[in-house]
Amino acid sequence: MPTVNQMLYLRVAASNPEESEKEYKARIADAEGDTLLIETPIHEPTGRLKKLLLGDELSIYYINETGIKHFFDSHVLGFRDDQVRLVKIRKPDPERITKVQRRNFLRVPAELELAVLTENRERFIAVTDDVGGGVSFLCDSKRDIQVGQRLDCWILLNYKNGAVDHAPFASEVVRIVEMGAGRKQVMSKFTTISDSDRQKIIRYCFERQFDFRNR
């Protein structure tokens, strides 16, 4: 497990591919319960600080005393103001720390039922295309959805043990792709989601990844 004073190296999920590939580093200043408190990340090549926002998805690695990189996913939980501002991030589950780097943020193909409410109060049911740090879904091209728009959603999750759960969240549309035949793909990122609901989705994603590895 990463410890206080250890250096973390991280990337931040972003709709801009160039931005999402930038690597920042930040020292762990403190730990409390299930959170780590890190200093503001810095981009070493430019010396610029990275302002993190509540809910930002992070892909992180640290190097242990034997020189091995350990990777995990996390997200911003909040902030604490001491002499400097510290960023609270979710402490990793030991079982989900890996020595293998993922090239993309945790996101898996999934056909799940999604209820959507748009800013103009239009309601409809869609089917997801993938899910992870946000959701992509397919819908009718006539739906009035624009990049930057807020969507209030409710997703139905089906687990391997037969259990069914749901998770409400708000998201922001980051990209729209016309698919032809009167359909379009809407890609969004989470903007408001409770930590417990985020964990439900992460659990679902890891189950799906396990299935893919064993095919």
Rank of each mutant, 00 (worst) to 15 (best):
V4G: 12
N5I: 02
L10H: 04
R11Q: 13
R11L: 13
A13H: 07
A13D: 09
A14F: 10
K25A: 02
A26W: 02
D30V: 00
D34K: 09
D34N: 12
L36V: 05
L36G: 03
L36E: 03
T40S: 06
T40M: 07
T40W: 02
P41Y: 05
H43C: 02
E44K: 12
R48N: 06
K51F: 04
L54P: 01
G55Q: 00
E57I: 00
Y62L: 04
K69R: 15
H70P: 06
F72D: 06
F72H: 03
V76D: 02
F79W: 14
R80V: 08
D81V: 07
V84N: 13
L86Y: 13
K88S: 10
K91W: 10
P92K: 09
P94H: 06
I97L: 10
T98W: 15
Q101Y: 14
N104P: 05
L106A: 10
V108H: 01
V108G: 05
V116A: 05
V116E: 04
T118W: 13
N120K: 09
F124C: 13
V135L: 14
F137G: 00
F137H: 03
L138D: 11
L138K: 11
Q146C: 06
G148T: 06
Q149R: 10
L157V: 10
N158V: 10
K160W: 07
K160Y: 05
D165S: 07
A167L: 11
E172H: 01
V174T: 04
I176N: 12
S188A: 14
K189Q: 05
K200T: 03
I201Y: 04
C205R: 07
C205W: 01
D211P: 08
